[in-house]
């Protein structure tokens, strides 16, 4: 299968390893990965902050860039959620029904990585090896917008060596919420404090999730406290394999 990678602006600029891992994983599973270089940003931050007119040109750009792709995969539930549930609405709001149709067509072939692996490729064992104690945070948009349910957990359970710990109150938001983290920084931090307490209670070495944005938030809190747990995008765990020296690749 020829898969177009929708890297997301955050991963492109700040977390390239999530994209590199996604590429490695999909290639390892025997698929061709392409990167349409004209892609930029889905506009979710604009839309969710109230700037839909400004987002419109990003929505249109996204629909143009990915119009010809067979299938599109992104290592972000949140950005896929925006493409799937917001793009056509924005287009219609500004009287662009033809763009809404094009956006809907792109949305219909866009998948978050975990749902793509389980639903489209039909695999749960991706041949990964990751000998660490891990806990998984189901991000709000993966859980309640994309309804990925336990698909990420099914993938993680098949990773050799991985010691998976249940995260208490897992379905609670970490407090990121895009610009919410700035506009309501104190409330955001209060939510983060509870999320970190739950993460630390698992004594996990690694916290993983399907969104680099939420991981940036929780990870930023954990390193600030020198808490001893780190964050890794789920693609990085699923891409990790047992190499000659016995150390997982990253």
């Amino acid at each position: 299968m020829r898969i177009a990678l929708f890297i997301t602006c955050l991963s492109d600029a700040l977390f390239p390893r999530a994209g590199q891992a996604t590429t490695a994983l999909l290639e390892r599973l025997g698929h061709e990965v392409v990167f349409p270089p004209a892609q930029t940003c889905c506009g979710q931050m604009h839309i969710n902050t109230g700037y839909q007119r400004e987002a419109l040109r990003l929505v249109e750009h996204h629909a143009d860039v990915f119009a010809d792709a067979d299938v599109i995969v992104a290592p972000s539930a949140s950005c896929v959620g925006s493409v799937r549930h917001q793009h056509a609405t924005v287009a219609r709001r500004f009287g662009r029904p033809e763009l809404a149709d094009r956006s809907a067509a792109v949305a219909a072939k866009t998948y978050e990585l975990c749902e793509f692996l389980v639903d489209v490729l039909g695999v749960t064992d991706v041949g990964a090896y990751f000998p660490h104690r891990v806990t998984y945070h189901p991000t709000c948009h993966s859980l309640r917008l994309l309804r990925v349910d336990d698909k990420p957990l099914r993938l993680l359970r098949q990773v050799r060596g991985l010691d998976l710990k249940q995260l208490p109150d897992a379905d609670q938001c970490c407090g990121f919420g895009g610009t919410f983290a700035l506009k309501n920084a104190e409330t955001s931090s209060a939510m983060l404090a509870d999320k970190m307490a739950n993460v630390l209670s698992t004594r996990a070495e690694v916290l993983t999730a399907a969104d680099a944005s939420c991981l940036m938030h929780i990870g930023g809190g954990l390193t600030r406290l020198s808490a001893g747990s780190r964050t890794l995008h789920i693609a990085e765990i699923l891409a990790a394999t047992d190499t000659a020296d016995g150390r997982p690749t990253r």
Partner: peptide, 8 residues
């Protein structure tokens, strides 16, 4: 803006 849009 008093929401993270978590969807709960």
């Amino acid at each position: 803006y008093a929401s993270t849009l978590c969807g709960a």
